[in-house]
């Protein structure tokens, strides 16, 4: 464990807590893509299949349970909570996430470190996580006004993987000089996808104006 990775995990946790707080406090999920949230549940379920089999550390196990629990409860709120589900506008959240799931799964079958169930699912989850934010970004482009909480949520979500990139650089030079192309390239793509969001988010923050993404 190094400071970059801890910062990454805490940023990730904060983003999810922020979203859960918005949904519970405002009883609204306006501006949030259910498609992206469902993709994150798939990402966590397929990445943490070894939760019950492999014990790395207390921290690792507890965080996995927290990520699984919070992501599943967010989808539950958006799908089944009597008040929150009324605030979900499925007409604007139209990104067909099967177009992300299938290619990522096929790619994981073709490009992986080992052709085992655990390894292929882990690889699939990395590829899927890299593109999971797309439905949310498309939704933001369609939203006239993006509320601050949603903007902050997406920003923190993008920032966490940037910390992980620093963590991988650190681990490569300081720890075991182990090349890990799959997480590295997936993480690089994931962070790159946020690039234009980061640009508009920081610009709106500097100019103290409402966050607006060009359509």
């Amino acid at each position: 464990m190094n400071a970059f990775r801890l910062a990454g995990d805490m940023t990730h946790l904060l983003s999810i807590i922020l979203l859960l707080h918005k949904i519970r406090a405002m009883k609204s999920c306006a501006g949030i893509s259910l498609r992206t949230q469902e993709l994150y549940v798939i990402v966590f379920v397929t990445r943490y299949v070894d939760l019950s089999m492999k014990y790395y550390s207390f921290y690792n196990s507890i965080m996995k349970i927290v990520f699984l629990g919070t992501s599943i409860s967010i989808v539950w709120y958006m799908r089944y909570h009597k008040v929150v589900k009324q605030t979900y506008n499925k007409d604007v959240d139209t990104f067909r996430h099967i177009f992300l799931i299938l290619p990522c799964f096929v790619l994981a079958l073709l490009i992986n470190r080992a052709f085992t169930v655990i390894e292929v699912l882990w690889t699939f989850s990395l590829y899927l996580e890299a593109v999971a934010i797309l439905p949310q970004l498309v939704l933001l482009q369609r939203s006239r006004n993006i509320d601050n909480l949603t903007g902050n949520y997406v920003f923190l979500l993008g920032a966490y993987r940037a910390f992980y990139l620093l963590n991988w650089i650190y681990r490569f030079f300081i720890e075991n000089h182990q090349v890990r192309w799959i997480p590295w390239l997936s993480g690089l793509l994931q962070t790159a996808i946020y690039a234009d969001f980061f640009y508009y988010y920081i610009k709106s923050w500097k100019n103290r104006e409402k966050l607006k993404l060009p359509a």
Partner: peptide, 10 residues
Amino acid sequence: TSNANLHDEL
């Protein structure tokens, strides 16, 4: 490259 420290991240 042992499997362990590949999957030890979240």
